[in-house]
Nucleic acid binder design. Structure first.
Lengths: 244, 244
DNA sequence: GAGTGGTCTAGACCACCAA
DNA sequence: TGGTGGTCTAGACCACTCA
């Protein structure tokens, strides 16, 4: 029996199941870190075979939205688990040493979105935003000067204290404090010369070459939720990228 | 019936099929761009079900080693096809304009591997290597200063003419001239200051910030076959990286 | 031992492509 | 129209986890 629904553009069943599962994730039926129902249970619920649910989950697991654990179950991915903290940080020490990440808070102010920010965050120009600046240090040495902008609405109540308390992973904080989970990000890298302010903060001379990382992060449904510009010292670190 | 072979560490059947297919690719039974036998034919050949062959091919397709085309067949991926030329080039114009890539040959000499090159290419220190330098220009403007090192043995006969003729994609040339196909690469990025020689070649001042991309490329079986250092001007271009 | 995800099979049917 | 990959099912059995 074919359960394929009639539709103008063909859409496989497992793809539709994937959408249903994603909606339950957005709706908060299953929260980050929690277990979701077993494949058999979902098969009954959606009235499809276990294999079809399986394909949908496979796809979500490939996108790091769900995590499968044999013998235990399938879990909603989270930025909170110790193991995957800093999942989006591709910068690693050249020597491979483990290092202590520290978060030096600089500022957190209410601002309005300029044209560029409005475009990348898919909000109106002039809409309320929160703007955060901080310095990340590894083993006591300044490493990254971060400039972060998020839309004010989903992050109502965000302030400097929350940034200070989160100690490192903003994503973990977004998740537990505001229920916003980032699932994907795009980064655009350039080499730039340090301006006076950043040079001072990082302890180098003006004009020093820095790795500029412009990142836009997306939550469920490819909705952009954070813009970030990181200026990094790459004397002892490099950005790792795997190509296939 | 379970066809699982007895082995100390458990290995799924489709994984073993994947190895067999990879061996046929290494052995040259199916060459880049060619079609491989249908799933049913392979199922008969390996004495497993079509679904198991399917999983093996799925995995190889996910690694961009094979390309599936519905209704036509499964093909060996190639760097020659126009569509996927420059598959490993993540640098794109900020404006999104299509541009003309050009290859300006600088030098091609026989050298010996130093300790670092020997390590990353998995060859003996002092082993014969070929060392190539070139300048890549986009729309007439210098953009990337490339320094490329490959082991001499698999590329016997490589010379300046071949580099000049290939006009851009070294990988396409490696494939058609030497039967070496790259399937994967690792890149390490840094921001550096231009030294005198590179600054001159790129038409900027000494000390100008450049994006340094150190790349190691691998052929089948994760065998490293090329080391490359690209120094890029990123005023009008950026390096795109997708995180999941 | 019960329950979960993971593998494997066999067979039906669908969407796409080319001749 | 026949062949290819793509989807979907139903059922069996395996590997892993935990009580």
């Amino acid at each position: 029996m074919n359960k394929q629904l009639i539709s103008p553009s063909y859409r496989p069943l497992y793809d539709q199941i994937k959408v249903l599962i994603t909606q339950s994730l957005i709706g908060g039926e299953w929260r980050p870190g929690e277990i979701i129902p077993s494949e058999m249970e979902l098969a009954v619920r959606y009235k499809v075979s276990q294999g079809t649910v399986r394909k949908a989950i496979d796809s979500l697991a490939a996108e790091n939205i769900l995590i499968r654990r044999q013998g235990k179950g399938t879990f909603v991915a989270t930025h909170n688990a110790d193991v995957i903290k800093l999942r989006f940080l591709r910068l690693t020490s050249v020597t491979g040493n483990k290092e202590l990440l520290q978060n030096e808070f600089i500022s957190c102010v209410k601002t309005k979105a300029n044209a560029h920010i409005a475009k990348v965050l898919d909000i109106k120009a002039g809409a309320a935003t929160m703007e955060i600046k901080r310095l990340l240090t590894f083993s006591g040495r300044p490493l990254i000067y971060d400039h972060i902008i998020v839309p004010a609405v989903p992050f109502k109540g965000l302030n400097g204290n929350k940034v200070i308390e989160c100690n490192g992973s903003m994503y973990s904080m977004y998740e537990s404090q505001f229920g916003v989970r980032m699932v994907r990000a795009e980064e655009r890298l350039k080499a730039v010369a340090a301006d006076k302010d950043v040079a001072t903060a990082l302890g180098v001379k003006e004009g020093y070459p820095l790795l500029s990382i412009e990142r836009v992060s997306f939550t469920y449904g490819d909705k952009p939720m954070e813009w970030r510009l990181g200026l990094c010292l790459t004397d002892d670190h490099h950005y790792l990228s795997e190509l296939e």
